[in-house]
Amino acid sequence: MNQQTLLSELSEIFNEVLDKEGIVLKPDTHAGDIEEWDSLTHIQLIVAIEKHYKIRFTSLEIQHWKNVGDICQSILDKTM
């Protein structure tokens, strides 16, 4: 799986969880760029991503994320 495929899959998850249409994620997208991405939906996104890829992030890993690129890297580390 490459980062581009991952980004489009994540965009779908974001659209579904945030109840929005047309979110297109880029590696440098961060919470400040999407209005609905707040401290509450952040947790819902994590749960949805973990369920989709059947993986489990550690708390420290999650707290290191600064943008979508970091999330992608964590997923790639666990699925490759």
Binding site: S39, I43, V47, Q63
Partner: peptide, 13 residues
């Protein structure tokens, strides 16, 4: 939010 709520919510997600 950063040092209490988020770690708690992550733990209990």
């Amino acid at each position: 939010r950063d040092y209490l709520y988020t770690p708690l919510a992550i733990k209990t997600r």
